[in-house]
Design a protein around this nucleic acid. Structure first.
Lengths: 219, 219, 219, 219
DNA sequence: CATGAATGAGCGTTCATTCAT
DNA sequence: GATGAATGAACGCTCATTCAT
């Protein structure tokens, strides 16, 4: 996710020994592709190794076991994603602008890196291992970020304050996640958007959440 | 799901030979509990049998294999759920009332049968077999139902018609699903509601979607 | 094999209680068909019951277990066959006539009751349980019968006496068995014979064994 | 079967990577012993592994499954046997000499490698998979070889031409197979022969088939 | 670093057999 | 007698993980 817009460079030291780090990264990317294709349980360590073009024993030089691969993907990718999110939510701008940016971030990420998103959303958030407190907390950080945007918007008088920001942030994140999910599964086809900056879906979601569905208003 | 509000009775013949049907149902309920606890992959057939209090060989008298158990749960429970949903969406009432009823249905179902909901939301949608067209279509039916409510509301002039009903229905369903998910995972604690008829969360979600978040409106 | 030519009636008492005996026989015949089709190991008790049109639990009222079914088939059918064989070998006639009759018996039996022959030749003689002394002895009786024919022919000056009758009887029985086997497997197609009394194959085999292959003789 | 008389060396490359090939061969030989002892169905994969002195999981590194082990034994051993057979049948010599050599080959093979012969004759020809066309054809090759010897003998005027060579070849092969079978099962005890080159049984069989049993001839 | 042979716990599934009705 | 639900031992196979080279 380093190449997502606005992603800060990884902190020095996260990658020690250029070569080792490169190979490790190579395995992770192979694992993401395989997890996205077959799911965590359906992916064999040998599949990952084959996808990475290495002997499967070598995987164990870089990762303790299969689960650590998944956890590493989550840690690195999710945290990178969170950093971008927090850059947006803690930056300048109105709540509306931030909600817009968030929606763009999420939908754009899926367009750019569908495998990453599939793994983060399907394999990790829905995996049984996800119940681990550390991962719960990591996801909580996303909700907290969005909640914070909403709460600040309320305090600034920009957003109405009679709606529980917790409920609203869950709704917003859930809405975005389902946009992605429906694309992944092909349940519903949203219009293809060649360019995220001109993303009608993003604008529709934001306007939906800001303006509401009720008719008879200044739109 | 026969006991969810408004669930129509199962058609006669759905259960052949009362005793056999009862035992089959017994195994399904045990499977739901085990799947909810350990996940589909983490559940052993012997766990299901133990939970049902029978020899595990007997499971194979009632189901071809482990996967058929999951598929049966999906078929029966999801379709029962859909029937209730469609009763609501195709019945009388304004779009607002129907959205309210839908939210109540979803959140109430989780409160009443958390295991069922966990399995339907987590285990089936996650399972690799979920990609099968039949199951995709079954989920699509839910979206179609909600979309229909929105479209009718727009045509009746009740809802604004400048928001794509497809996007809105994805958002609505996703919002509700995430309410549940966050409860399941404990990511965020919504207030405990002792009684679904007085469900502040339901009202918050509906008002969020109808009225929007933007301030400075007649609320 | 009661209906093979010359088969003596079963001794009274072999079938007790007409009804019970009939059902038992019915199961045996079903078992023969199933064993012939799928082999002993590939045949399930439930297959046999289904073929017989009864509940599979009932099989155990008539037979101790699956193996006893096979053993019973062997005992009854093989002994019936042996009785016919011994009728021939111990009856009047030259050795040549008896060899001819034996060949006809074997090849005709396969034409009439291929399933019986398949089971006797493939499933029993080749089953690992066949090593049991009792069954070895039963098969030995066949060899002994043929050996006796040959030995008597030698003593009568009808057959040359410089060939070990043991070797010759093995060769003769083996030749006949392979005729059958090649038919069953379709390895080699012998000409279809509509009528056993005019069986060129039988005559060829007999002439082969009596006259030998060497050329330059009065034929 | 490489060590049977006249067996040609395996083509280079048949064994890739000396070590891997050796271990594979080691498993095959263990499997032959176990199959010969318990039969294919009675042999557990773990028995084979134990006999080979390896972990049973390793069996699956070398063979797809249990059946592939049997098929491999058949493919390799039977084809090696056929090569020797065809060397004899297509080489120089009279038909009588070739029939003699064939009998020696078969009976000697059993003396040398009883387990191989047991598996080839009992486990493979008996197995349900044996019906597969490929295996039928492989067995057909043996018959064809013998048939060819007989036909050539007839054309050369060495053998009488009024006996169908197909019938005669079935009889000859069947006779030899039954010699073996009776030895395996102990139905009949042929005299122990310390040395195949002086094999009275071989000479008896050949003289039986060439000279016939009828008395009163120049012998 | 790199390889892939080796290990063995674990699980799904089959099916002969028993037994309550 | 007749049924088929119930039992559970047995076994094939997978695959994460280790380790010698």
């Amino acid at each position: 996710m380093a190449d997502l817009p606005g992603a800060p460079p990884l902190p020095a030291g996260a990658v020690s020994s250029a070569a080792r780090g490169a190979k490790r990264e190579h395995i992770l990317e192979a694992a993401i592709r395989v997890f996205a294709l077959h799911g965590y349980h359906g992916a064999r360590v040998s599949d990952i190794a084959a996808e990475a073009g290495i002997a499967y024993g070598l995987v164990y030089h870089y990762f303790k076991n299969k689960e650590e691969i998944l956890r590493t993907i989550f840690d690195e990718r999710w945290n990178a994603f969170l950093r971008v999110v927090e850059q947006v939510t803690q930056g300048p701008g109105t709540a509306a602008e931030k909600l817009h940016a968030l929606a763009g971030l999420v939908l754009y990420a899926y367009r750019r890196r569908p495998d990453w998103v599939k793994v983060l959303v399907f394999e990790i958030r829905r995996s049984s291992r996800f119940s681990e407190p550390e991962q719960i907390r990591a996801v909580g950080r996303l909700f907290r970020s969005v909640e914070c945007v909403l709460r600040n918007g309320q305090e600034a008088g920009e957003l109405r304050d009679d709606i529980d920001p917790q409920v609203a942030c869950l709704a917003y994140v859930g809405a975005l996640e389902t946009m992605i999910t429906s694309q992944v599964l092909g349940v519903m086809q949203l219009p293809e958007e060649p360019d995220a900056s001109d993303d009608r879906t993003v604008r529709a979601v934001v306007e939906l959440f800001l303006g509401g569905l009720r008719a008879g208003r200044a739109q």
